[in-house]
Simulated scan of single mutants.
Amino acid sequence: MSPFAKLLLVYDGSAEAQAALERCAQLSLALSAQVDVISVVDAESANAHCAGLLSDLAFHRLEELARSTLDHAVRQLTGDGIVASGYVSFGRLNDVVLRHTQAFNPDLVVVGHRAQARRSRWWGSRSAHHELTERLGGTTIVTVTLPGT
């Protein structure tokens, strides 16, 4: 049996997350590992973008979108014969991933990555996987980028 028995996929439906889903499926099949998929509803960031005016309706729409996105990923994995469980979690992405890894102890965390624009790098914005690397000391993180980026 492989030492990697459980994978965690962070999935938001983006093209990068879809690439991560495909890589996670390949890893899961190769390692005979089960997969936990999390979709994050970050209402705090959404509320900040709305100047604090995020309505209940908008919040529920964010949750519906996360559930739909999560269902797509879990269906794709189970269709490939992979044992997969899905979770919708609320909070900031890195906090949610940290909580999930503490609770379920995955062997690998798989995330999609979008290369930052120069302006973002210049302003000092850090991508999620950089912070995850620091916060998840000892956990292996697989970062998947789109071909050609």
Rank of each mutant, 00 (worst) to 15 (best):
Q76F: 12
N47M: 13
G124I: 07
Q102R: 09
L8E: 03
A19Q: 01
T101I: 01
V142A: 08
A15R: 12
S68M: 05
A66I: 03
S39K: 14
V40W: 13
L146C: 01
G112F: 09
L70A: 03
A66K: 00
Q102I: 04
L8V: 01
E131P: 05
S125G: 10
H100G: 07
R67W: 00
S28A: 15
G86Q: 05
H113W: 04
R23Q: 10
L7Q: 08
Y87D: 01
A20F: 07
L29C: 12
D36M: 14
V142D: 04
G112H: 06
W123L: 15
G52F: 14
T139E: 06
L108R: 06
R119N: 04
A17G: 00
N94A: 12
T78M: 06
D107Q: 05
N94T: 14
T139G: 07
Q34C: 14
L136D: 05
S2T: 15
R99T: 10
L31T: 14
H130N: 10
K6T: 09
T133Q: 05
G148M: 09
V111F: 04
F104G: 04
C24H: 06
L98D: 11
A128M: 11
A15L: 07
T149N: 00
A51P: 03
A17M: 00
T143H: 02
Q102H: 09
Y87E: 02
A17W: 00
S125C: 14
S55K: 01
A73W: 12
R92L: 12
A19L: 00
P147F: 01
V74A: 02
A19I: 00
L57K: 08
S14E: 01
F4N: 03
D80I: 04
A43F: 03
C50D: 03
R99L: 11
S120M: 13
V111A: 09
V41D: 05
A103P: 07
P147S: 03
T139P: 05
